[in-house]
Amino acid sequence: MDATDHSRSAGRRVLGSLGYRTLRAAAVSFWVMVIAFGLIRLAPGDPVLARLGAEAEPAAIERLRRQLRLDVDPVTQFVEYFLALLKGDLGVSIENGRRVSDIIATSLPVTLWVIAVTVVLGLCMAVPLAAWVATARHSSVPYIFRAVTSVFLAIPAFFTALIALIVLGVHYGVAPIIGYKPDFPENLYYVWLPALVICTHLVPVLSRVLYSSIKETMAEEFVETGVVRGVGRLRFYWYYLLRPSLAPSIVLLSYMVGVMVGATVIIETIFSLPGIGRALVGAVIGRDYPVVQGCVLLFGLAVVAINLVGDVLASWLDPRLELR
């Protein structure tokens, strides 16, 4: 980053911060697209032979090669891919002939819903936790907090998911073991446990950063002013402690969404949620390249977009960031 500081500051002056960020996000999106495109073509080995097996009929190989457009030169392939993409055409599944965009349209809402519930649940736990640890009187509280969060971060989510499923799903029967209903109040019943499992990783990371930045804020003079002026407790917490401390966590949260998207791949498989992560795993096992490509592209673009929103939101919450 710092190596390009010079060009960055020049870019900032010309385009303004928001414009510059958007431009950068667009450049990153372009590379994401190139990666998604290159997945089949640049990897060692022949994807067609990998799918059909070495003893496949030459005619079948030729047909698949034509279907994947591997028979023309790479530049033409890329231009075709790019133009189709602009029209929203992500290709057709080899497995069942469905359009990739349709597959994504049906599975994406499930994943988004899981992530949305996770973020809300995570914030509801992390913000009070961090504020409590930061203002705790006893000196061992931060110490225990660090140790406990370290342990949580070291436990793989799929293990937590399995245990949660055995204990809460099978033994106590308070969570569904399988299935999903897409309508609003009912779908909460299907996603609360997966969301809680992802929170076992989200809350430690989020509350740690939030804790650090609250501590940093507490060292600033305006906090003392707040105490001296005797502002109300809630007002003090929000205006003097939390709002100035939230910005780093928002940036982090937007990056964590990317990590969570990764986590949903395994979680959706364990809880049998028909989301995009399960679509991806299914497509990989069936070597359904167009679907894999479409999912990767979508994941990448989503993360880039969310990071952009996070940056903008952070500079709104803490205008000091803009000056740095």
Partner: peptide, 14 residues
């Protein structure tokens, strides 16, 4: 920007 797990799974397809 691509989640490591997603990229890894996609590359395993190949």
């Amino acid at each position: 920007a691509l989640p490591l797990l997603v990229l890894a799974i996609a590359l395993i397809a190949i």
